[in-house]
Nucleic acid binder design. Structure first.
Length: 272
DNA sequence: AAATGCAACAACCGCCTAGTT
DNA sequence: CAACTAGGCGGTTGTTGCATT
């Protein structure tokens, strides 16, 4: 037989996370680090499934996350990476320090898509939009098919982790071939060669040492449109950035009045 | 000031892959 | 090797807050 089921899904809570739940999860993660998600809700005293905890942690509670809108540079990077990788948000996110796949996906759907369309660039294929009599949906359908073919071609040489490397290699080696590529190439100094990969030891190192790029950048260049978020940005916290909800209950509360929990952060293994 | 519409984003759902027994 | 699950990913939906009427 295989593993035990992740959760019985009976009596589990759904919907938005409460402050209390966030607090419990953060406390647990700080104390124990990331382990088997299946046991996290049980040990943390949460009526959530492990999947939900993982999502909440990776997308919102992780201390190394940047908050607020993507900067112009980040947007360019996303467009460039999307032109090469398609909707592979997690892979795109891995090139952007402190950003999650969910965040990038949302930003793409709400901001970048519109921007590109306004500029006459198709957000799917990164090529100039061609007005067709049959309407956009049909056109997009064709383009989606073309993209799929393109992606397949990119993936052909190998599979699994090796294909991942291949895709990344292509990102670095490809010359501008699409409209958005051309647009991006107009921006001097932007090059995917310079895109840093986030490795777990980077994160750990940044938490353990000096304030990171995320803590210095996010408060200024990526300030959120919401007033509450900018309120959160006013509060300084050494070497890591916490979401607004975290600020609300106070650091003493969160850290349990000890610095040992921060030390515990060193043991965290953060994916991406 | 209230109602309505829209935009942004957090969270869920379902599928896929890799790992375990 | 087959059966089964955990974890991860991408698509979609639901909720919330803001802007406009």
């Amino acid at each position: 037989m295989g593993r035990q089921p992740c959760c019985d899904k009976v009596g589990l809570k759904k919907g938005p996370w409460t402050t209390e739940e966030d607090k419990r999860l953060i406390n647990f993660m700080l104390t124990n680090g990331q382990c088997c998600w299946r046991v996290v809700p049980k040990l943390a005293g949460l009526l959530r499934c492990g999947k939900s905890c993982r999502l909440r942690w990776t997308n919102y509670l992780r201390p190394d996350l940047k908050r607020g809108l993507l900067s112009e540079e980040e947007e360019k990077m996303v467009i460039e990476l999307h032109s090469q990788l398609g909707n592979r948000w997690s892979r795109i996110a891995s090139h952007l320090r402190g950003r999650t796949d969910n965040e990038i996906k949302n930003h793409w759907n709400t901001h970048i898509k519109k921007k590109l369309r306004k500029m006459g660039i198709d957000p799917l294929l990164h090529k100039p939009l061609i007005p067709s009599a049959s309407g956009v949906p049909h056109q997009e359908q064709q383009q989606a098919g073309a993209l799929a073919e393109r992606m397949e071609e990119q993936e052909k040489p190998c599979s699994g982790s090796s294909s991942e490397k291949a895709a990344e290699g292509q990102v670095e080696e490809n010359t501008p071939s699409t409209a958005s590529d051309a647009f991006l190439s107009k921006s001097p100094g932007f090059c995917t060669d310079e895109v840093p990969m986030i490795l777990s030891h980077d994160i750990l190192a940044s938490c353990a040492s000096t304030p990171t790029a995320s803590s210095s950048i996010s408060t200024s260049s990526t300030c959120s449109s919401s007033s509450s978020s900018s309120k959160a940005a006013e509060i300084k916290f050494p070497c890591m950035e916490w979401p607004e909800s975290t600020y609300l209950w106070g650091l003493d509360d969160l850290m349990d009045g000890t610095s040992s929990s921060i030390g515990g952060m060193k043991n965290l293994i953060i994916p991406h």
